[in-house]
Simulated scan of single mutants.
Amino acid sequence: MPLVWVARMAFNEPLPGGAIRQTLTLGTFADVLGDGHYWRVIWQTVELGVLVTVFTLLLSYPLALFLARTTSRWRGLLIALAVTPLLISSVARTFGWMAILGNQGVVNKTLQSIGVTDTPIQLANNLTGVVIASTEIYMPFAILVMISGFGRLDPELERAAASLGAGRPAVLRRVVLPLTLPGVLTAGLLVFVLSLSGYVTPRLIGGGRVFVLATEIYDEAITSLNWPVAAVLSIVLLVLFGLVIVVYTRLQRFVERRILGERGTPS
Rank of each mutant, 00 (worst) to 15 (best):
A166F: 07
P14Y: 11
P16H: 05
R73C: 03
E47T: 12
V247A: 15
N226F: 03
F241V: 15
V176T: 13
R8M: 15
L24P: 00
R209T: 07
G115Q: 06
A162F: 00
L57P: 00
R250K: 09
Y218W: 10
L48I: 12
P2W: 01
L196T: 10
P182G: 14
R174G: 09
R8C: 11
V236R: 06
Y199A: 10
R174D: 14
V106G: 08
A124L: 06
L77Y: 08
V239P: 11
T94G: 06
L233S: 09
G49E: 07
D35N: 15
A221T: 09
T53A: 08
N126T: 03
V91M: 00
P14H: 13
A133D: 04
V4T: 15
S113Y: 01
V41M: 14
T28A: 14
G183Y: 04
V175Q: 05
L26G: 15
T201D: 03
T45P: 08
S163R: 02
S90I: 01
L157E: 02
V41D: 14
L181D: 09
E216D: 13
V4C: 13
G76S: 14
L123T: 04
M1D: 12
V236H: 04
G167N: 03
D35G: 03
V116K: 01
D154T: 03
L81H: 05
I147Y: 05
L157H: 02
A82K: 03
V46F: 14
A92D: 00
G49H: 04
A82W: 07
M146L: 05
T94P: 02
V193S: 12
G17S: 08
V175C: 07
P14E: 14
I259Y: 13
P169N: 05
Q104I: 01
L189I: 03
W5G: 06
H37R: 14
G76K: 06
P62D: 08
I147Q: 05
A160G: 05
R8Y: 12
V212I: 12
A64K: 02
P155K: 02
